[in-house]
């Protein structure tokens, strides 16, 4: 008798699981998975997504980086290097300015401590996340654009 009971119990336990599978088979909803390479055009990452590090430029090609190296000090991996230059300002002072903002992409862990440490809010982690390149050297990037300047209110 207990033998039959065992069979009944085990069969019913499996059928209850299969009932759930059948339920989802009959009541299928919108697919939860994203068809990633195909939905590239519509794929939107959340606003805070930590993707590629960018030095924000406005339409006049001006950025907010004063070259203070706070991000370089905050970076745990040494992936940021700030190269400075000296520049004479209009009132005759010799001031430090940003020459090149070097970001070594391959060393970055995307912790966003640089964005957090920036006193002027010049940096942002952008939404772009497809980083595959054929040549490793191209992962060392210059973030300030050609001919860009410091925003006038920070000079």
């Amino acid at each position: 008798m207990s033998y039959l009971k065992d069979i009944y119990r085990s069969m019913s336990s499996m059928l209850s699981g299969m009932q759930l599978t059948g339920h989802y088979f009959m009541n299928f909803r919108k697919a939860e998975t994203e068809q990633y390479p195909d939905n590239r055009l519509t794929l939107k990452m959340s606003p805070r997504f930590k993707g590629e590090l960018t030095l924000l430029h406005n339409v006049q090609n001006m950025h907010k980086c004063t070259g203070c190296s706070a991000c370089q000090l905050a970076c745990p991996n040494g992936s940021i290097t700030i190269l400075e230059k000296r520049e004479l300002t209009e009132d005759g002072k010799n001031k430090k300015r940003l020459q090149t903002f070097v970001w070594q992409h391959s060393m970055c862990t995307f912790c966003s401590l640089c964005v957090d440490s920036c006193p002027t809010g010049a940096l942002k982690m952008e939404q772009r996340f497809e980083f595959t390149v054929a040549d490793r050297k191209t992962l060392t990037k210059t973030l300030n654009k050609e001919g860009s300047q410091l925003a006038p209110d920070l000079r």
Partner: peptide
Amino acid sequence: TIFEEVCGSRLTMN
């Protein structure tokens, strides 16, 4: 997805 919206990353949030 909630983590991604809050912290910016899905697994190794900081």
